[in-house]
Design a protein around this nucleic acid. Structure first.
Lengths: 135, 135
DNA sequence: CTACGCCTTCCAGTTACGGGAACGTCAATC
DNA sequence: GATTGACGTTCCCGTAACTGGAAGGCGTAG
């Protein structure tokens, strides 16, 4: 299969697939004319990568997961450790985003949003520094 | 004030302050010896920036907010528009993260995490492609 | 022969800084 | 006066994970 077909079948852009090859996640064969030739195993790998990336794993985590996946002697504990670590990263991001969301929502709700210059959003941005939002 | 004092007073790293000058968010004066000299207004601006960044606004949004802040003829609607746009970005990110969190949590909970290779996390990553998580 | 679509490589840009080198400055101390 | 140490300066590279685009080769249809 050529890269275009693989792109269609995996949902990944061709650019991304080339990138994955460049960083050694993948080693597709080549036709005599220089075109990449992908096997079903390559497609499988790419789907694994696409799914892992869509769950937010970094490329290096994906590399590790892929390594474990192809190692029959793996311990599921190792997989779980990666996933748990990633999960806690997600939890942290979520907390930060929720805080932002709450603060912003309050500010936005208090802004009348008309043609007058008076604006609690700007007042807040200008006034506070490190103090908590609602002391 | 020199950059170190400003860094302490604003909580921003000196590197960041220099960067903000480089991208024209700030134009501190200079001493004869080449050292940056910051006014109280500069400090105020930097606090505004720090606070805006901590709410997740991009640099360009900060630039726009700062412009509105220093424009007495602004319309609060313009400020609100920026904030609302940003808020919807946050909402989107939150949704994505929540989905990831849910999926990952389920997978992690189903993995025994011992020394055996059997692992539902890997099975899931390998098996699914675009189908919803729980059909 | 040419046109078109696919493929290739390579280079640059993205975001918002952080690290570190190499070097100048200032105040205090010896 | 020399030195030390803490500060300041500029400049360049690296980050994550791609994306866009240029310049050019390949394959097939008309």
């Amino acid at each position: 299969m050529n890269i275009g077909d693989v792109a269609k079948r995996t949902g990944l852009p061709a650019k991304t697939i080339r990138y994955y090859e460049e960083i050694e996640l993948l080693h597709p064969a080549r036709h005599a004319n220089g075109y990449r030739y992908f096997s079903e195993a390559d497609v499988h790998k790419l789907r694994f990568l696409g799914r892992s990336r869509s769950l937010g794993f970094t490329i290096e985590e994906c590399r590790a997961l892929l390594g474990l996946y192809s190692d029959p002697g793996r311990a599921s504990a190792d997989v779980k450790a990666i996933a748990l670590d990633h999960l806690s990263q997600i939890d942290q991001k979520l907390l930060k985003l929720l805080e932002m969301q709450q603060t912003l929502r309050q500010l936005v709700d208090r802004c009348h949003g008309d043609d007058r210059p008076d604006c609690p959003i700007l007042t807040d941005l200008a006034g506070k520094e490190k103090a908590p939002r609602s002391p």
